[in-house]
């Protein structure tokens, strides 16, 4: 505990100090500590999430001032700047990359309300809305969807972007989206930063590109294969290629040198024929050409 932290603690009421102590003690028990955004998560759902994390990670929510104090006491000063808005503390012994993946995967769609800012482009998809003809078609058109009445119901004729990311949701749009059951938000624990064994990771670090790793595996395997074959190191998986390569080399030599070998003869005959035809293309005079090659 730093001198500074000690000085601060003196100013806290006892119940707050107890909460800070408890939090900081908890943080000390894990290898990785992170900050998660909780915006838009109803408290019931938050309870479920906390339960689902059990065994993987510990999620605690407290007042931001107390969370900051606990982070400082536990030596996680790097995380303090991320404690902003509705956030909680998460602690785990899990691989932070795996934790990020898990949290992202657990995010669920949620409706968006009037006055909220769209986190991404909001699209009303092409198709039958299932709504009977009525004033709703006008409401759809009003928010910018290409809608009309067809076959006894209201149809959206094409994917229609009705709001761009960063723009505010209007009352009308919120109503339309609600009517259609469109849930444009992704709600869940939003990992903002993690310190794992002393190293700070932000979401960009944690968002691993699995495809890139897959491609690295392919590259690594291909390189090893190239090396094994080029260095003529036989393994079960490369020896067929080595054999084929040796065969090809012998064949190439045999054809180049026109070696009289039974196996090579069909190809040598084919080669001679190909050469003859190649030469024939250079001959302009029909009369000089064999009948087979005259036009």
């Amino acid at each position: 505990m730093s001198a500074q932290a000690e000085r601060k603690t003196e100013n806290l009421p006892q119940w707050k100090q107890e909460e800070v102590d408890e939090l900081s003690e908890l943080l000390g028990e894990y290898e990785s500590v992170g900050i998660v955004g909780l915006t838009g998560i109803p408290s019931k759902q938050l309870q479920d999430m906390r339960r689902d994390l059990h065994g993987t990670a510990e999620l605690r929510v407290s007042r931001n001032t107390l969370q900051i104090r606990a982070l400082e006491e536990a030596g996680y000063e790097d995380l303090v700047s991320h404690v902003e808005g509705h956030v909680g503390l998460i602690a785990t012994n899990d691989n932070p990359f795996a934790l990020y993946k898990e949290l992202e995967a657990s995010k669920t769609p949620a409706p968006i309300n009037e006055g909220e800012v769209a986190p991404n482009d909001i699209v009303i998809p092409e198709g039958d809305t299932g709504v009977d003809p009525g004033p709703f078609v006008g409401e759809l058109q009003g928010v910018g969807a290409n809608a009309r009445i067809e076959d006894g119901s209201i149809q959206v004729m094409e994917d229609s972007t009705v709001l761009e990311a960063g723009e505010e949701v209007s009352v009308d749009l919120a109503n339309v989206l609600n009517e259609l059951g469109i849930e444009p938000k992704e709600v869940g624990l939003d990992l903002r930063a993690v310190v794992a064994e002393g190293v700070l990771f932000d979401p960009e670090d944690l968002d691993i590109d699995v495809e890139a790793y897959r491609s690295d595996v392919e590259t690594a395997a291909a390189r090893a294969r190239n090396l094994a074959i080029n260095a003529e190191f036989p393994t079960e998986s490369t020896v067929p290629t080595l054999v084929a390569k040796a065969t090809g080399e012998a064949k190439s030599l045999g054809l180049q040198a026109a070696i009289e070998d039974e196996e090579l003869m069909p190809d040598l005959v084919t080669k001679a024929d190909a050469q003859l035809r190649a030469l024939a293309t250079q001959i302009d005079d029909e009369e000089a050409l064999p009948e087979e090659l005259q036009d």
Partner: peptide, 9 residues
């Protein structure tokens, strides 16, 4: 390896 005989041409 021999499956490409025409190439021999």
């Amino acid at each position: 390896a021999a499956a490409a005989p025409a190439a021999a041409a």
